[in-house]
């Protein structure tokens, strides 16, 4: 035990170098496990570097996300999980100082192509945020907003149907069907988060990005969302950032471990939590740091 600890600490010490040294060594590290898929990759990222001004937050990350897969991203706070996730639908564009390089593809299409329009991209790659953020509008209008702005439906009846199916898929329908026109912000935290999920799936995205969707919720609401993620994976590809290792173990197929902006290991979830390949991953999942 002490030996392993020492090894882990040595490795951490190695990783916690000066930024310059880290950048210099960024090419040298290699992600262990299976970050790449032979076939059926929905999104594939290669050599991704992300900078906030002069500060590099993501180092040379390569990763595939498979069709209908649930990929969990774990790692200590500040390691760049959110940063990486937000690259996948270009939410980082809103931060002036943020710069992304490398290849990021959605079904073979470069999503950082300067000619690409982010509006349809975000319709295809939706996002659920850490804190529930319903619009200050009614429950109905929250869910109907996406279909409305993208012009997905032409008649009111169709819209009603989309709202209902989305709320059903988010397993919120039974709780709110009698008060669709009540404000969305009047729901409980867990209900609000499911409303946000319903709002995201109402535009039928292909990929859903979730950034710690349960961090503001109690265990019961969390269980509901986890159940929901399992159901959603039948139709959607999901990338989820979480701080709860149990959650990652429960909902995901593959797990990616980030450490100080580097992608250390990607493996099947079961393998990561029972027999990880990298000592840093082991140290993290056994709770020695993070």
């Amino acid at each position: 035990m002490t030996e392993l600890n020492a090894v882990a600490q040595a490795t951490i010490a190695q990783a916690v170098e000066t930024p310059a040294a880290a950048a210099a060594s960024s090419a040298s590290y290699e992600t262990v496990g299976q970050p790449f898929l032979d076939s059926g990759a929905k999104m594939s990222m290669r050599d991704v570097d992300v900078f906030y001004g002069d500060k590099q937050a993501i180092f040379n990350v390569g990763l595939d996300i498979g069709q209908n897969e649930v990929l969990a991203m774990i790692g200590p706070s500040g390691c760049g999980k959110s940063t990486f996730l937000r690259c996948l639908n270009r939410m980082n564009d809103t931060i002036d100082i943020c710069r992304v390089t490398g290849q990021l593809q959605l079904e073979g299409q470069n999503i950082y192509d300067p000619k690409l329009d982010v509006v349809p991209l975000r319709a295809r790659v939706g996002m659920v945020f850490q804190k529930p953020n319903p619009f200050p509008k009614s429950i109905y209008d929250n869910v109907a907003y996406g279909p409305r702005i993208h012009g997905l439906v032409s008649r009111r009846a169709e819209l009603d149907e989309v709202v209902e199916t989305s709320l059903r898929k988010a397993s919120l329908w039974e709780e709110v069907k009698d008060r669709l026109h009540a404000p969305g912000t009047g729901l409980s935290g867990g209900q609000q988060q499911r409303l946000c999920i319903a709002r995201t799936i109402a535009v039928s995205p292909e990929v859903i990005l979730m950034d710690e969707p349960c961090s503001a919720l109690d265990p019961i609401a969390t269980a509901k969302i986890e159940e929901l993620i399992a159901e959603l994976s039948e139709n959607f590809t999901i990338a989820i950032v979480t701080h709860s290792m149990q959650q990652a173990a429960r909902v995901s197929h593959r797990t990616a471990y980030f450490h100080l902006g580097k992608l250390i290991e990607v493996n099947d979830t079961e393998k990561v939590f029972t027999n990880p390949d990298h000592e840093l991953t082991e140290a993290y999942i056994t709770g020695r740091f993070g």
Binding site: T94, V119, M127, N133, G146, I149
Partner: peptide, 15 residues
């Protein structure tokens, strides 16, 4: 205006 509202709208693909 809370930034979370902007993010929510942009996350769905609002221009």
């Amino acid at each position: 205006v809370p930034p979370s509202i902007r993010e929510a709208a942009m996350g769905i693909g609002a221009s």
